[in-house]
């Protein structure tokens, strides 16, 4: 652990080394390592069942790890007490409380648990529930309940905020205002660990991302560098004279299209695409599943 502290110093809020978790014979996490610097927003991406939630729940203190090391705000999450929890904000993936209290009552109650909470009015405004503040939580829609979850996550002015698929059930407008909220928290210096299935969301909000598949971290890097330079080479797509869809990756798409035009008639459905984070991600995950199936092939 001393070595870890030296590498990133005190500005690291999350340090994970060779994290492992197994349930009986099933290995959910198979040696995951990453750091999150103070003030950074880090996205953990991956398909369902890849180990994202397992990782985040180990860091939140909900699950015990089977191996490896973890430090969250300098504390082993397995032994985090009330003082430690007061410095975290947690937005869980699933919540389903009976909700026999109003939005305002719920927020005021939780605010009382922190030393320096945000104002209840401020938080209600931040998540856009002004008109529902006196409504019982059980009467809210799924998306509105999710906003209450987010509100409870931020009310204690956390140093580190965990967001496990926070915008599930949001309409596009609500998602945009959620992004604004996260940008505000970032500007205040909050560190954030985010998991999401919306790659545009990860691209909009995070500084760095890690891609997890089959319990392993298959790539990690700055959001505009993940997947490597190769994965970001533009793609030219068109339909050829025989009506067959074609595509070509090229670093010089203008030149390629010019040549295409010189060689024949106007190609149908011509487009030049810069791979989005989503494209890069899908390629990464597809490559991973190909290599794993190749690895297991000879055994059979």
């Amino acid at each position: 652990m001393e070595g870890m502290a030296e590498t990133r110093g005190t500005d690291t809020v999350v340090e994970v080394r060779d994290l492992r978790k197994s349930y009986g014979a099933f290995t959910a996490l198979d040696g995951v390592s990453f750091d999150i610097a103070r003030g950074e927003t880090f996205a953990l991406l991956g398909p369902n069942g890849a180990g994202k939630s397992t990782t985040i729940e180990i860091l939140e203190g909900y699950r015990a790890r089977s191996g490896g090391e973890a430090r969250v705000l300098g504390v082993d999450p397995q032994h985090g007490g009330v003082e430690w929890k007061a410095r975290l904000g947690i937005v869980l993936q699933n919540t389903g409380e009976t909700g026999n209290v109003t939005v305002r009552e719920q927020l005021a109650h939780f605010a009382g648990m922190y030393a320096n909470p945000r104002g209840v009015d401020e938080v209600i405004r931040m998540v856009g529930l002004e008109r529902q503040e006196k409504t019982l939580i059980r009467r809210l829609s799924g998306g509105q309940r999710r906003r209450v979850d987010v509100a409870l996550g931020v009310i204690g002015r956390p140093e580190l905020l965990f967001l496990d698929e926070p915008t599930t059930g949001f309409d596009p407008e609500a998602r945009r205002s959620f992004w604004e909220l996260i940008r505000l928290l970032k500007s205040e210096g909050t560190s954030i660990l985010l998991t999401t299935h919306y790659l545009d969301e990860a691209a909009q909000l995070s500084d760095r991302a890690g891609v997890i598949a089959g319990g392993r971290l298959i790539d990690i890097g700055r959001i505009d560098e993940i997947g490597g330079a190769e994965a970001r080479v533009p793609i030219v797509r068109w339909t050829d004279a025989d009506g067959i869809p074609r595509e070509q990756r090229t670093a010089r798409p203008g030149e390629f299209v010019a040549r295409l035009l010189a060689d024949g008639p106007e190609p149908g459905g011509l487009e030049i695409v810069r791979p989005s984070l989503e494209d890069v991600y899908l390629t990464l995950v597809a490559q991973h599943s190909t290599t794993t199936s190749l690895e297991t092939e000879p055994v059979r």
């Binding site: 909900y62 009330v82 947690i90 869980l92 699933n94 389903g96 409380e97 009976t98 204690g156």
Partner: peptide, 12 residues
């Protein structure tokens, strides 16, 4: 229903 899980992650 997740009430205890939420409280368990809070400083209560």
């Amino acid at each position: 229903d997740g009430t205890l899980k939420r409280l368990g992650g809070s400083p209560l």
